[in-house]
Every structure is written in structure tokens, then in C-alpha cells.
Design a protein around this nucleic acid. Structure first.
Lengths: 231, 231
DNA sequence: CGAATGTTTCGATTAAGATCGAATTATGAA
DNA sequence: TTCATAATTCGATCTTAATCGAAACATTCG
């Protein structure tokens, strides 16, 4: 009865509402200070400090001191994956009283999921890339980028060679809890969003996970990522 | 501060030690009764009943009534994935006082991880398949089975065509918490273990997650899965 | 230096929920 | 039917930990 790693320890750390709120906020991929996280979680700074100490001790978040601030981030990619996983299950098993998407329409439309695009636009992007067979599933059911897809994203300005050298998988599916459909994660998902920022199509909102697209940026997005296969 | 799915709800369900023990036991892939789970968790039947009601209500476990027993299983593959994920993190972030593997040597050697082989033999299997390039990582970093690999497993007696029709991915890596290295999960991992049972190489232990190999079975296993690439 | 801001420590309070004994319901066996 | 076993419900107890006020500590700025 006492074999194996102590999953209760880790799960309990995430299982407190205040801490879960903090972790959700950190899914924005941004480093946040203790005070910001306190605000996000709806608790006082003292309480937040205690929670953050626990999360840090437990290896869930990493802390970095800078001046009189302490910045926190999620400690490891597998933590991100765990939280994504949790969100999917929480969404699926949540009582029906819960609305199918976030209250905030902007959040539902485009938000950051750690470092890639989620929400309606994220799902649209993913499904378009699939339709055009830029992303395909091979025999073993694994997702990968096709030759045409590689050409397409390089044309868009991504350095595929460099991205392939990262230990992180290039293509990964991530269940979108607001849409209940998949969007693109992995190095490719992150790279595409990064490039959209560079092109000035969009920028991160400062106080939430919303991604703000400029009108021109949004038009360019749909021009490029809503094209049909046979165009 | 209150956006998105309620991950705290799910995490808190897993975060209680008694419930975590039950879920770990269910990772054996076997359907267990309430009493068995009570024993496993080290609590009385009343307490277990209350926990199981919560897990069921929360969509974590599925219940099936049979006679005067109630059998419980993990409700969904993504729950299994979540637990595997949690085990990996719990192992990685666990304090060093924790030994690097399970106490029970048999458990460390070969155990069931939901429906596939884990432990030393699981890791050996996975690494051998990789060495012989039966399992390869393609450009996008995704794992898949090679042509030679497909021939090999079909020769072993698996029906690849049927396995590919399952929605479940064929090859998946699963971090082995006792070895801190990967073993093979997914439909292929499950199929291989299944076939080993059929061949009489091994059988599930009745009261733990240990997989008992017969002497002949173990020899056959190492003969087949410890061969070098150039043999 | 002193003032302001960010963070942590300490201590006391309080709320949530894990636990079990006793009793109850359900099913199968004799 | 009667008995035994499995599972649940109820009620009471008790432990854990979340919370915040007050105060201390750290760092930057003027």
C-alpha cells in the first residue's frame, strides 16, 4: 500500500484553490511576482508567500530573485504538460453547470497557453494546418509536419532546423478547454506564435492570458491560416 | 482570477493520500472492489466508500456493480495519462531521502503500468527496440514504429492492422519512476504485454502490480528482446 | 539616511474534511 | 427464511492547513 512515488504530495500542492489559481496564471508563460500571484489567487500577500514557499519546496515552481521582486515560473515542461492535462480532465468532468468556455469573450477568442496560441484562433490554426496537410498523422498515429508544411512555415519565417534541435517535440496536440478541440502546442506551436509577435500581428496582454490581435494582424492571420487546401 | 476549468477540484481529489493509494492500485489496470481498495489505501470500508463516492462523482473512476460487489476502474485513458505524469513529477521532485526505486525488488524488476510492462524489463524492452531501430523518432521528434519493427512485432504475433484502428496512439513513451528512464506505453506496449501473457511467459500477480515471469518466460524474453541490432 | 514597496515570519483563528463506530441497506448463500 | 458478507449512510471527533493581522526583513529610491 505504500509503493511508488508520492503522487498525493504533488496533487495536493495543486489541489488548493489559491495555488491552482496561481499555477493557472503562470500558464501564461510569463514570470510573475509574488504580489501579482497573490492578486491573481485572491489572497493576501502573506498567504501567497506561504503558498509559493510550498510550491517552490515541492519543485512545482522556480523562483528567481531580481531586485526586491521575486519572480516565479513553472519549473519544468512536464509541469506544464501536467497542468494542461488537468485542465482537459477538469473541463471534461466538470459539472454541466459550467459554461462551455470562459466568460471573457476575448479569452475565448485568443489566449496564450503557456507559450502557444489557444482559443478559437488556436483551434482554427490547427485545423487549417491539418486540412492543408501541413500537419499529418502517420501510420502510428503520431503527429508530424509534412514536407509542404515545412516549406510553409519556413516561408513564414521559422527556423525549422534550429527548432528540430530542441529536445522538445515539434508538434504536440493540446486539448483546448474552451473549445473542446485541439490546438497546436510543441516547439512549432510556440514558434508560430512567437513569429506572430515579431510580425506585430499581436501582443500579450499585460494583465491576463488574452492575446490582443491588431485589426491588420487578425486579417493577416485569417488570410494566411484560413486558406483552403486547393488554393 | 476565476477563469478556466477548475483544476483544483480534480487535483484535490487525487491529492488525498488514501485516494491516491487507491488510484495507484487501479493503475494495475484491474477492476477492484471497494473493500480491496480500502485495504490498499489502509482505511476502513466506510472511509473508502466515502472516498470512492467522491472519485466517482468527480469523474475519476468508473463504477460497475456486479452482484454484491462494486468494481472500480479508472474512468478514462486521460486519467491514466495524468497519473503517469504525476508519478514522473512526484518521482523527480521527491526529496532525496526517497530511494530511487520501489522497496520490493520484484516490483522494481517487472510491474504493470496500467496495461503495459514497466520496471527494469520494461525499460530493457524499450531500449532494445530502439537500438534495433524497430522504434524510431522521426524528424518531428515523434515516436513511431519502423517497417522492420512492424515485421518484427507481427512475427511475434501482434495484429498491427487492428491496433492501428484504435484511437489510442500506437507508440507512447512513459517515464518509468523506478528507473527514471522511459518504457513503452500505447497500444503497442499493451499489445506486447498481452502477447506475453498469451504465450505463458508471465502472469499478473493477484495482490500487487508485480508481473511474475516464469523462468522459461524470462529466458525467452531476454532471448528475443536483448538481441543486438546486428544479429 | 529615511521613506516606500515587496516579501517573509510568527501566531492565533477558523473552516474543511478525513476518519471511524454504529446502524442500515443490498445481495448471495445455506 | 436466516445468516453472512459487501457497501453505504449518519453522526461525532479530531487533525490539518488555509487564512490574515502584525511585525520583521530586504531592497530600492529620493
Amino acid at each position: 500500500m505504500k509503493e511508488g512515488p508520492d503522487i498525493a504530495r504533488v496533487a495536493a500542492l495543486i489541489g488548493d484553490p489559491a495555488r491552482a489559481n496561481m499555477l493557472t496564471a503562470l500558464m501564461s508563460g510569463r514570470a510573475l511576482t509574488a504580489t501579482e500571484l497573490a492578486l491573481e489567487a485572491g489572497v493576501t500577500a502573506q498567504t501567497a508567500s506561504s503558498h509559493l514557499a510550498k510550491l517552490h519546496e515541492g519543485g512545482i515552481v522556480a523562483a528567481r530573485k531580481q531586485g526586491r521582486h521575486r519572480y516565479f515560473t513553472l519549473d519544468n515542461p512536464d509541469i506544464v504538460e501536467l497542468l494542461e492535462n488537468l485542465m482537459g480532465i477538469a473541463q471534461r468532468t466538470g459539472h454541466n453547470r459550467v459554461r462551455t468556455g470562459p466568460k471573457d469573450p476575448a479569452l475565448r477568442k485568443a489566449r496564450i497557453c503557456y507559450d502557444h496560441l489557444a482559443g478559437e484562433m488556436g483551434v482554427a490554426l490547427f485545423e487549417n494546418l491539418q486540412q492543408r496537410q501541413f500537419i499529418v498523422f502517420d501510420d502510428s498515429g503520431e503527429m508530424r509536419i509534412s514536407k509542404q508544411g515545412a516549406a510553409f512555415v519556413q516561408d513564414f519565417g521559422l527556423d525549422l532546423v534550429q527548432m528540430r534541435q530542441m529536445r522538445r517535440p515539434l508538434c504536440r496536440e493540446c486539448l483546448d478547454w474552451s473549445m473542446r478541440r485541439s490546438h497546436l502546442a510543441g516547439a512549432l506551436g510556440a514558434g508560430l506564435l512567437q513569429r506572430m509577435f515579431e510580425l506585430g500581428w499581436a501582443r500579450k496582454s499585460n494583465e491576463s492570458r488574452v492575446i490582443d490581435f491588431t485589426p491588420t494582424g487578425e486579417k493577416a492571420f485569417y488570410d494566411l491560416f484560413a486558406a483552403l487546401p486547393n488554393n
